[in-house]
Design a protein around this nucleic acid. Structure first.
Lengths: 195, 195
DNA sequence: TCAGAACGGCACGGCACGTGCCGTACTGCG
DNA sequence: CGCAGTACGGCACGTGCCGTGCCGTTCTGA
């Protein structure tokens, strides 16, 4: 169904998502209600339910409507340097309120709501994964990464430790931590010949 | 406050936790209600609220009252073999209904409820981490792991990729995946001399 | 046998859910 | 310019669950 008043509708959609993010910051996602979003946005509940089937879907759209710029790889020619800068940017973003708590809530919601999990993967995780794999493929061709390294595992092995700290141990995300993880991953666990 | 009727109270506590797990399997954690647990357990709501401050706390206790045995390292003398067996056990457990969905829900709840996050860490993650670090320390002393490898990162780097797959991409947890991750981690990403 | 704690039953006010109805404001077409 | 058609706001409703209060009952150990 195509809207006949596209600008008007689009404006309202944006206002609603902004209200959602504002309230999520103030009260936390868990206490967020559609009623409160409607009131803050100056909109009736119908207008929200007409656009999103659930609180989770609304929140997913609201949060993904933010980012965009920060996530591309610089082109220094050195994988490790590129990688480090990219992960620095991600970690800095998560450390900048209110992104950390909001993203944490989104991932939490994805554990209960399969539609949110699917949307998160398709619209954020997958594109990010594709970029990372492409960058590693180039690095492999340039001899900067072991040729036998399984590219399908890149995202898991690189991001996994970050998500673990972010979601499980819930300790602060620092650049120092990024450095230590990268160092460990590139070196590997096996006793080196030079040891 | 120490209960005067310990056995009676303990019995009811167990019945409530069993009802919680049963209902969580049937309806999913998101739709779980205290009222339904009370009804299933044949107990009044007071009796539940007297023991747990929130649905999350109840669920945490219920789930952690299950495990126990599966989680220790075998003593084969080879770190990699020990590790593989231990992670196999964890992955098998998550693949056995209803553990996967229940644990996923618990971690999801931990993203919204700091008390649940703290309890999960103290009572499950931290002990598990200590065991893993101890096993790696022994391996390091035996020269099976690089001496310069940062032991504080062991849990993050080993478990991170597993949690990433479990929570983010939400693909099946298989032994093959475990093998590939372990292989990559021990080898490292740097181009090997033998390449 | 008795005191005291824990309990079940019942009820309550409060809140947010999701939906229905109706009158109104807006837009593009004839 | 007037007329669809659509999206909207306001209001209201029934429902489900929340967390708590009261009161009478059951169980336990001294």
């Amino acid at each position: 169904m195509i809207s006949i008043q596209p600008e008007r509708a689009a404006t309202r959609t944006i206002v609603i998502m902004q209200a959602t993010l504002a309230l999520a910051q103030e009260t936390g996602y868990a206490k967020l209600t559609i009623e409160a979003v409607a009131a803050r946005a100056g909109v009736s509940k119908h207008t929200i339910y007409r656009r999103w089937p659930s609180k989770g879907a609304l929140f997913l759209d609201s949060l993904l409507s933010l980012d965009g710029p920060v996530l591309d790889y610089p082109g220094t020619g050195d994988v490790l340097a590129d990688l480090r800068q990219q992960i620095y940017a991600a970690v800095d973003l998560l450390a900048t309120p209110p992104y950390g708590p909001l993203y944490r809530a989104l991932v939490g919601e994805a554990q209960h709501n399969p539609a949110v999990a699917a949307g998160l993967n398709e619209r954020f995780i997958r594109p990010q994964t594709d970029k990372t794999i492409a960058r590693f493929k180039a690095a492999q061709d340039a001899g900067q990464v072991a040729s036998r390294f399984d590219l399908d595992l890149v995202m898991t092995i690189l991001s996994g430790p970050l998500y673990y700290r972010f979601l499980i141990s819930q300790e602060p995300m620092t650049r120092d931590y990024v450095d230590r993880v990268l160092d460990a991953l590139f070196t590997g666990m096996s006793p080196a010949a030079k040891d």
